[in-house]
Amino acid sequence: MTAHERTTAPEGQAAPMLDVRDLRVSYRSGEQTVPAVRGVSFTLDRGQTLGIAGESGSGKSTMALSLLRLLPASAQVSGEVLFKGEDLLTAKWARLRAVRWSAASVVFQGAMSALNPVRTIGEQIREPILLHDKIGQRAARERAAELLDSVGVPSRRLESYPHEFSGGQRQRIMIAMALACRPDLIIADEPTTALDVMVQAQVLNLLGELVREAGIGVIMISHDLSVLSHMCERLAVMYAGRITEIGPSKQLIAEPRHPYTRALGRAFPTIGDPASRLAPAGLPGDPPTPSELARLSEGRGCAFAPRCSEAMDACRTDTVELWPSGPRREAACLRVLEGSGT
């Protein structure tokens, strides 16, 4: 089926809301082309939540931001991002601007830098509403007040400036803005990373409720596997620009099939678990550097092999891709193919 046929397919039928196919992003850096995302595919429907886990440099944020073409011009993006049947990677800028905010919005990490410091938050929440929904100032004002109340910030504070709020409140305001035009998809990039545990729990709780009520599809990016597994039904783990394992969150945490998922899971101890008491678990070595990645992309072999305790000779020479590893799950590990990947 081509992209064009999908465009004409009636909405709400078999085609998923978001269908990402072989997405690749590389950055030009001097003479070199450095791959950041090396072939990512997944689908997401309305009301579904997908968590993307990975460490810094895994390509998770680049991948998420490329969906709405929010990357700098030095990024080269290829593949397909079919959103309601329309390929956002080839869409005209005017069309893309219409999709941003109104159909798909982003909650960025670090609300302090994402909010404009010299404009009141009321103005900032109203801006996308006025731009996209063609309603009057007064109606926009009312909607902004409702939104602010719905995220637990008193609406009388609409005329306050970002610096007058705490970190947790600013992140709530970001969520209110993302919800302003009633989108079908929200991309949340580390929405709670800079927040304290208690505030993080409040914000996640809020996001979870709003998303469930409105049936919005969510892609949530985080380095924290335990947070993602509680927020999202499905989880994708990224390493070196690729998805290494994807499937239902609970299964991925309880029975990881990829050694990297296993290591990442152990890195977040469960309090009360005797196995982790006075025994922190890490993973020796470092993720591949950009130049190592560039080399990897040309040759074969598993990018994780140098750090993998279970690597075999074949891991360094064979092509590794996502293979089915159970119902609704896939893992990019040769051991899975062997049938011994437990």
Binding site: L225, A267, G282, L283
Partner: peptide, 30 residues
């Protein structure tokens, strides 16, 4: 990063065991 975190924590434990070092570690992380 998560995988590195464990390695550094391991190091602090090893230093205690091998050098008898005492430590006060400040964190938000239980």
């Amino acid at each position: 990063d998560a995988s590195v975190r464990g390695e550094i924590l391991k190091l602090i434990l090893e230093l205690r065991d091998s050098l008898g070092l005492s430590a006060l570690v400040v964190s938000h992380d239980l």
